[in-house]
Write a protein that binds this DNA or RNA. Structure first.
Lengths: 295, 295
DNA sequence: GCTATTCGTTCTGTTTTAAAGAACGATTTA
DNA sequence: TAAATCGTTCTTTAAAACAGAACGAATAGC
């Protein structure tokens, strides 16, 4: 029942070159041995991988399929070998964090901060789209993905979404706005800068508006929090965003917080793959209280 | 020197469960055998994969690393096994085509058309961004990527870009434009709808403009050809695009072709990985004359 | 058209490797 | 303190991978 990886390896080598004898020489085994083991693989799989035409070998359709899998399997294996071969030295601990590119940089930095001071550890921080990051997570190229929305896992992708923190969402705008906006009344005449429709915060905001029968004028939809910060600063529109993003501007009076929206939160999630042996450093990160991540 | 995949498999299984004895029972081997082979793997790699604390096994940092690789290796292997196990039947030929999402649909369809009639073959057609598609190509999840620009390969990613076709690029706009635009003079007063700056056609257009010392007014930059078609139809601006994209509109008089731009071409490339055994159907596609792809 | 060569397969015996079993040591539980 | 659990080590046995020779078919050279 089980796949023999040594047989598959021989098959892969022969399929790469197309010649059995040459491959046998390169691998320092006899061609008879090679021939037999490939035959055993074919018998186990129940299908011919090569089509024998005269004294030539051609890949069958099944062979092409197997070859594609073999390619990823053994390139991974060679990468692993190389990793151990180069460094006889002990491997340093590595934590690889992916973050959705539109996520608050403050939050990202707060999350990894405990690791920054440690010189016994390598930190890898990558940004990207959600799809891309989740793919890397599944391929074990990342240990954790930071996102502003949870992900539902399934049997094929056993993701686990853990809420790390939440913060209130306010109406943020120039301090000189008149009349000063207030929620839910006192919004007429103002236009909004909102998160994009895929954002969970935006969804909560829309629900809130629909509850109060408000149809706010939308000046811009922005995915990136850093971008929203710029727009809030440089326009006269009202941004719907967590105050912490513009902490500096609020402090020096460039912007003003016109009050938090009830029941609307910007949430932060850590998405991991459930596994028996987590990296101890990562585990420590995930079990910390969420409060300290946002200051 | 070479990695023993059976040893790695045992290691993977033990690392997954965390228990040697239980894993031995599950695999129907003795714990002594399991223990020895993992030890052999450690000796070959030159580092301990487990840290033995009392009678417990914990993954070392090197072990975590190896485990990540093992995970991808053996999930791939199991997928391969399952594929052959389910179907005792012969595998049908599969051609998997990726196309940059902004590419002309006409062209995509023209490319795969010879495969559409065949019922001895499965066609898989996926759209996506260039990065994503190239990653899938490298992982052998795609056989070919269609793009409007070539890609330079390197030793790590031995991509091969082959030009399939080229078509002229014209000034396309409403037939009622006055004064009627013409190149290179007679453009003043008109605004342009152009491909995005990453597009090779756009680059050629900019070069042409700089040669004639023109600084055209830009109304919009659009990546997607289908989108550009809509804008050309619904505005009074001049679109820079291949006439074939709006063939229907040109025919029924909704739009007018104000002439091709000299030396500017929209080009189409097929990007593949060089390999010994190409799928015969794909090979046939790639060696066809490019002309027929565009009508 | 004949012969020599190449290349993959099959069959035989030999060597290497994986496996099982018993003894051991260390740690946890009762 | 005894019993049970769990991983390691040592020795023997079973299974596999392997090499070599014989074979057959297809190509290449003359």
């Amino acid at each position: 029942m089980k796949l023999n990886y040594h047989h598959l390896y021989y098959f892969w080598q022969v399929a790469k070159s197309g010649h059995l004898t040459r491959t046998a020489e390169a691998l320092h085994v006899s061609q008879s041995s090679l021939s037999q083991q490939i035959r055993q693989l074919e018998e186990r799989l129940g299908q011919a991988l090569f089509i024998r035409e005269g004294r030539q070998l051609h890949l069958s359709e099944a062979g092409r399929l197997a070859f594609d899998y073999a390619e990823t399997i053994f390139t991974q294996g060679e990468e692993l070998s190389a990793l151990f071969a180069e460094g006889g030295h002990a491997h340093r601990e590595v934590v690889r964090v992916g973050a959705v590119a539109t996520l608050s940089r403050n939050f990202q930095e707060g999350f990894v901060r405990p690791l920054l001071g440690r010189d016994d550890l390598d930190l890898i921080l990558q940004s990207g789209g959600m799809d891309d990051l989740l793919r890397r997570l599944s391929a074990h190229k990342l240990d954790v993905v930071l996102s502003n929305q949870p992900v539902r896992g399934d049997s094929e992708h056993p993701w686990r979404s853990q809420r790390l923190a939440r913060q209130p969402v306010s109406l943020i705008a120039s301090p000189h706005l008149s009349p000063p906006p207030s929620f839910p009344n006192g919004l007429s005449g103002h236009a909004f800068i909102l998160p994009g429709v895929e954002n969970a915060t935006r969804h909560a905001f829309d629900q809130l508006c629909s509850h109060y029968r408000l149809t706010p004028k939308i000046a811009a939809e922005v995915d990136d929090m850093a971008m929203m910060r710029l727009l809030a600063r440089d326009t006269q529109h009202i941004a719907v965003m967590p105050p912490v993003v513009v902490r500096d501007e609020l402090h020096n009076g460039t912007l003003k917080d016109y009050g938090a929206l009830p029941g609307v939160w910007e949430e932060f999630y850590a998405i991991t793959i459930q596994r028996r042996f987590e990296s101890p450093s990562l585990k420590a990160l995930l079990t910390r209280s969420g409060e300290s991540l946002l200051d």
